[in-house]
Design a protein around this nucleic acid. Structure first.
Lengths: 201, 201
DNA sequence: ATTTCTTTATTGAACGTTCAATCAATAAAG
DNA sequence: CTTTATTGATTGAACGTTCAATAAAGAAAT
């Protein structure tokens, strides 16, 4: 057999290089040459392994969302209780997991979010991720409050999580993970302890 | 005197056309030709009035932030009370003002937010706006709670507002202004009514 | 063991496209 | 006439993709 086994290595290299390039100069200036230089390979290799630049960008977003999903799933698997508060807490912690909040990942995530408004394929990935977060939150809230209230709580908490991410991606210092977790968990406590102020639509 | 007075008209036309183009195809594909076509003029006129494409984009962002500032200021001016709750409520309402949440404006806002991560001039504008929102919230919270708590509340409420915007910009249906206002105001109520759960850092 | 042979991996120059900016030319208003 | 307003063809740079050529690593054959 000929020289084999380069494909998974190169794919990982190039995905990582894509995030590094976006972190460095932004999505608009992340050219194939710059990405290739980050990975220490030539530009042509991108088309060879990903069919083109779009394929690489899509694969990169897929990786980010997959890591996020796994971070949340791991935290929930480690739970010994079944209480809604703990499960939602695990979802919060997973969303502010270390691997997700590093500078390059956060900036790439935001760049793709903005880009997904006009690229159907990215929008699809984003929507799947979004709906899972919302559905998970909704399901847990549903165990301790009525339908309408649970939906409102899920929407609000999801918005707070995204907002903290958004602001974390922009600030020079990056996101303060501990503070973000503290703020989100405090909000959760307020939602669970004093449930009757959020009137349904 | 020769033909005069076109400048303010054209500038407004082009800024509006910029938002329309970004709403239509995204910032990456909003070329000068496409923007000019939206405004019904030729491409060259953009360099004539704004010095180049970057000048037009900066002016557009300036306009969006200026409109937002004005929407908040107007609501606060109309208040008859001086209660922190009412003032923060006015800030919330101003941020979800009609002129700000329309599709084109919201999408342009998000596109600029992402872009500002790597364009110093846009980052400056963004930061000024950010600090004003945070300072205003902080000042009002400060009137009814200790320093540390007020800072945490301001950060959390600002994040919720941005998160609701972010999600509103992405969803196909656009932001539900009434629900966003309701969620943010409910959070405000919880922060003000039950103050002792948010421990300072 | 040495020599083909086949397949994967990789390069980098060439190509065609697209874009922002420029500028000479024109129009129109005083 | 003078000045402002506007056009649109042109220019040069930058980009993604393609592709012929090359390298390298095993397999098969001698």
């Amino acid at each position: 057999m000929p020289k084999v086994g380069m494909e998974p290595i190169r794919r990982q290299q190039l995905i990582k290089a894509t995030m590094a390039a976006i972190d460095e100069v932004g999505l608009a200036d992340a050219t194939v040459m710059r990405i290739a230089r980050h990975a220490g390979v030539s530009a042509g290799i991108i088309s060879h392994y990903f069919g083109g630049k779009d394929g690489l960008l899509e694969a990169t977003m897929r990786q980010i969302l997959s890591d996020l999903r796994e971070a949340v799933a791991t935290r929930r698997r480690e739970l010994s209780t079944t209480s809604p508060r703990d499960h939602i807490g695990a979802i919060i912690d997973g969303n502010f997991d270390r691997s997700q909040v590093t500078g390059p990942v956060a900036k790439t995530w935001l760049a793709f979010w903005a880009s997904s408004m006009h690229k159907p394929e990215l929008a699809r990935l984003q929507e799947v991720n979004d709906r899972r977060l919302y559905a998970n939150l909704c399901h847990q809230f549903r165990r301790v409050m009525p339908h309408d209230e649970a939906r409102a709580c899920a929407r609000a908490l999801a918005a707070l999580i995204d907002g903290l991410w958004l602001r974390g991606a922009l600030t020079l210092e990056g996101l303060d993970r501990d503070e973000a977790r503290r703020l989100a968990r405090d909000y959760l406590d307020r939602l669970l302890d004093n449930r009757n102020t959020l009137s349904p639509s």
